[in-house]
């Protein structure tokens, strides 16, 4: 029997209603079955589950990277539709991936500034966006690596650049897909602290997908995706 996790009080930073997704392999295989979800400011939500359960698919749908077959999605009360999807993704959401996904032929600073450039903000020397990028790089401890091409950085450094990039346009939501999957425990700890620190601010929230139970326990809420539905993590033994 499916049970959805429903928020107690509005306004929600993210509200998903009855999200369903199915793929043809070549037969119709339902992946997500009517998931509803609320995330409020200051919340950090960890979604756990076995491989192939559709955690990343859910993350991409919630992050507007993929369209659900059915269901509605609201970000800060604004319904996501094809005309505002790219803008909302650019302004309200930051992504962090297990494989970092940096632009390798760009410097760390250029990577961090890219969301601002996509938003058509001025990014020249002395601009507000550039100053913010430097502040973010300093926050993640990479002020001295700003002009480095990202291909020259270590895995931990790359993920910190990715984190700074995710925060470039001051989004309200950060979606992290196994953010420390490719990192050693010490570096992973730094990334976790940063992510949780972001979510501790009012009006900001973190949604992460992980196999890491330790990280999941650090989040304010935990859910498990099983058979296309979300269950509170406490029910899992």
């Amino acid at each position: 029997m499916s049970r959805s996790v429903s928020p107690k009080s509005p306004p929600a930073l993210l509200k998903a209603e009855d999200i369903s997704k199915a793929f043809y392999y070549p037969n119709l295989v339902p992946i997500l079955k009517g998931i509803s979800l609320h995330i409020e400011g200051g919340e950090s939500l960890a979604i756990v589950g076995r491989s192939g359960e559709g955690k990343s698919t859910l993350l991409h749908i919630l992050g507007t990277l993929e369209e659900p077959c059915k269901g509605l999605l609201f970000i800060e009360g604004e319904e996501v539709n094809p005309s505002n999807r790219d803008r909302l993704r650019n302004r309200k959401i930051g992504f962090i991936f297990q494989s970092f996904h940096l632009l390798e032929d760009h410097t760390a600073l250029e990577n961090v500034l890219m969301p601002a450039r996509i938003a058509r903000c001025p990014v020249g020397k002395g601009s507000a966006a550039e100053e913010r990028a430097h502040v973010l790089l300093e926050k993640v401890g990479l002020a001295d690596r700003a002009r480095f091409h990202t291909k020259l950085l270590s895995g931990g450094e790359k993920q910190r650049v990715a984190l700074a990039r995710a925060m470039c346009n001051d989004p309200c939501l950060i979606f992290a897909d196994e953010p420390s999957g490719n990192l050693d425990s010490q570096t992973a700890q730094i990334i976790h602290d940063m992510l949780l620190n972001f979510a501790s601010h009012p009006g900001k929230a973190l949604l992460l997908v992980t196999h890491n139970g330790e990280l999941a326990h650090l989040c304010s809420r935990r859910c498990e995706l099983r058979h296309g539905m979300l269950y509170p993590f406490s029910r899992v033994s």
């Binding site: 790219d86 803008r87 993704r89 650019n90 996904h101 890219m114 996509i118 990039r165």
Partner: peptide
């Protein structure tokens, strides 16, 4: 391809 995906994840539109 990967860079296209990355740019899209940052909000670049398909027209861009």
């Amino acid at each position: 391809k990967t860079q296209i995906g990355i740019l899209r994840s940052m909000g670049a539109s398909s027209q861009s």
